[in-house]
Amino acid sequence: MANSDESLIRRFKNGDEESFKELVKRYQARIYSIVFAMMGDKNDADDICQEIFVKLYRSLYQFRGKSKFFTWLYRLTVNTCINAQNGRKRKLQTISLSHPVGESEQSLVEFIEQDGENCSIDILKNKELGMKINSAIDCLSDDLKEVFILREIEDLSYRELAKILQCSEGTIKSRLFRARDRLKEKLLPYINNS
């Protein structure tokens, strides 16, 4: 039977390092997806994800279990991303050799994942749609972006979202509505063609 988050944390507090590894493996993909979507930049995502888990390691002893673990972890994630965004200078992004693949391209030239060997025009069209979606998400304001990303990646309920983002459920509902409305506005011509 899989260990619950709580039992892993208990074991970690008793000095079992392996349980921390299990926690990282359990959440790494989800946290990474959130951070990548928030930052729009692979290397920033790598650095910030590592930072989040280091923070987690150091503060896990203080976790009292009043709220659910994942609510706590997502709040840590969102706060770390927002701090990083505030700290990051808003300047023209570059594609540069010294930046590993995928670091900053998204802001300079919208991109999507490579999806196969073919180079046919159809695939290019699909890629274009992906590019449009990514850039539309990127254009959302931070408060709309975070709630939309958390909802779409994690399928969290409005109540859970409200806890993580520390606002009311009504605010979550209206933000999601606004986020989707903006996306729809930008993507309508592409969605209907696809």
């Binding site: 979507a37 590592q50 729809k184």
Partner: peptide, 22 residues
């Protein structure tokens, strides 16, 4: 449609040695 497509695009995998990096 937007929700479905966004979901597909947003989900990413970290590098395989992520834990080692941490």
């Amino acid at each position: 449609k937007i929700s479905k497509l966004s979901k597909l695009l947003l989900i990413k995998e970290p590098e395989f040695d992520f834990y080692e990096q941490v």
